[in-house]
Nucleic acid binder design. Structure first.
Lengths: 194, 194
DNA sequence: GTCTATATGGTGATAGAC
DNA sequence: GTCTATCACCATATAGAC
């Protein structure tokens, strides 16, 4: 990627990222043209290439940054009882999913539009995130406060269940976010036999 | 769509459907060209237009047929106790998801590439499917064999959880399908407080 | 029923002016 | 840092020969 400095660059760069994220999430990576992104930012298409090598790098950067932020923001507290850690995770994951719907959506379904190299990198980061949850479940089983036949499957099941809120949740809907989080926590707790 | 008859048509038509389904699922609707579909079938692009109005109709047909089959295949048995009906649903949904991974994937994430008209139609069918599950949960709560704060959220949570198997399940993997189904049934039963 | 040929317009990406 | 102009290519869809 071109290394640019100065004041203008640092206003345009985030605008490009945000436009790309928003458009990719709404229409899909393949359906969005560099011209559309440029138009959304208010520049011409040539300008975009001052900030990114190509369209692929734009997507890979979005996904990498998202997964790195997710991992950085999740501060597990292993000293806590497993059940409290799981409750924290449920709340954290739902909050992140609703605060960053676009990125969560992209990370989930634009993996296939990454080059194999980029895909491997993002998949590794995602695997780390899954492992963070599985560690809690293993801990809970070891402590005897949770029961499940397979912590790996339970991990995948919980993440799919929690991420699913983005499919139907709309701000101002029937239930507010806290309410939703409490209900999902009940479902999750039941699923892991706690 | 062009009405065609004769022997050749009825071999080519399903080939086009299968090629489109497979390619759309793998690369995404927007990323697949009519030329790619034609090449997969072994014909030239012009031939495709003898079987479909346009690319959009190809996608809409795939999704409509899939949802209609799903609804037709699900034969609920309301006379049964709610818990047994739920177990049937869990098994049914996982089996369908794994037998028809491509269609399930498309129905889940190519809605946004439908025209508003087509999207409404498919969304209505999906809603019927969700309602079939929710009816079981309401019944279970009424009978006192399940407990949950909100049957609608539990419905969405369960469907997301179950459909998630397509994200990681691979035939010949660590667990066979029956094993997976049993484990997910345990998770689902716990989630609904049974 | 399938082909070839074509109309029309959009695509990612680059070169070079300012 | 952003623009204009351009390249080479691919897209969807149609017309008409066979």
């Amino acid at each position: 990627m071109a290394r640019t400095h100065g004041s203008k660059a640092e206003t345009t760069r985030p605008l490009i990222r945000e436009a790309a994220r928003s458009l990719f999430a709404r229409y899909g990576y393949a359906a969005v043209s560099m011209r559309q992104i440029a138009a959304e930012v208010g520049v011409r298409v040539g300008t975009i290439y001052g900030y990114t090598d190509d369209k692929q790098a734009l997507l890979a950067d979005l996904l990498r940054t998202h997964m790195e932020e997710l991992l950085a923001d999740w501060q597990d507290a292993p000293a806590l009882p497993a059940l409290q850690r799981l409750e924290r995770f449920v709340r954290f994951h739902i909050d992140c999913s609703l605060d960053r719907t676009e990125s969560v959506f992209l990370a989930y379904m634009e993996l296939r539009n990454l080059t194999p190299e980029n895909r491997r990198e993002i998949a590794t980061l995602r695997r780390q995130y899954e492992d963070a949850l599985e560690a809690i479940l293993k801990d809970g089983v070891a402590q005897g406060v949770m029961q499940m036949a397979d912590t790996r499957l339970a991990t995948m099941a919980l993440i799919a269940m929690l991420t699913g809120v983005t499919n139907w949740y709309r701000p101002g809907g029937r239930l507010d976010r806290d309410h939703v989080t409490r209900i999902y926590w009940d479902l999750a707790r039941g699923a892991v036999g706690a």
